[in-house]
């Protein structure tokens, strides 16, 4: 376990304007004692990765309800790699087909939490992923 709060950047990428879900997740993580940075709507992968590196977050969580996951995540991983930040834990949330979930896992997305994930499970998942990675 870390001796400090887990830092998380929650991001909305692209034209997707549905932010009710991500705000609920932000509250849930806050109530679990995490420091949560919210990007706001309509960000580009470049903006999200830059923010995540400046903020040095443990976890980058991207919420997508617009179906562009297979376009957005490869860009995010490429950018993280090129900026020397490949120890960042990337997770996804939202609504997406099961076959895309498999693709994302192959790409390096550590966990994909779909629309029916209970809030406690999100907290437990992030806590586990950060504790497995350890202090850095």
């Amino acid at each position: 376990m870390l001796t400090r709060p887990i830092r998380v950047l929650l991001a909305k990428v692209g034209l997707d304007g549905h932010d009710r879900g991500i705000r609920v997740v932000a509250r849930t993580l806050r109530d679990a004692g995490m420091d949560v940075i919210y990007s706001g709507l309509h960000r580009t992968p470049e903006e999200v990765v830059t923010a995540a590196i400046q903020e040095d977050v443990d976890v980058l969580g991207v919420s997508l309800l617009s179906g562009v996951q297979l376009t957005v995540f490869p860009k995010i991983f490429r950018l993280l790699d090129s900026k020397g930040a490949n120890d960042m834990i990337v997770v996804a949330g939202g609504v997406m087909p099961d076959e895309d979930v498999l693709e994302l896992r192959k790409m390096g997305v550590k966990e994909v939490m779909l629309q029916d994930t209970p809030p406690d499970m999100i907290v437990a998942t992030l806590t586990r992923l950060v504790s497995e990675r350890g202090e850095r």
Partner: peptide
């Protein structure tokens, strides 16, 4: 809970891509 929501960045989103600016919450 000790947790926090850090929302100041949202107002500064136009600055993010400028390499001469570093923002930390």
């Amino acid at each position: 809970s000790g947790g926090a929501i850090l929302g100041d960045r949202i107002r500064m989103s136009d600055l993010v891509m400028d390499p001469g600016v570093y923002i930390r919450s």
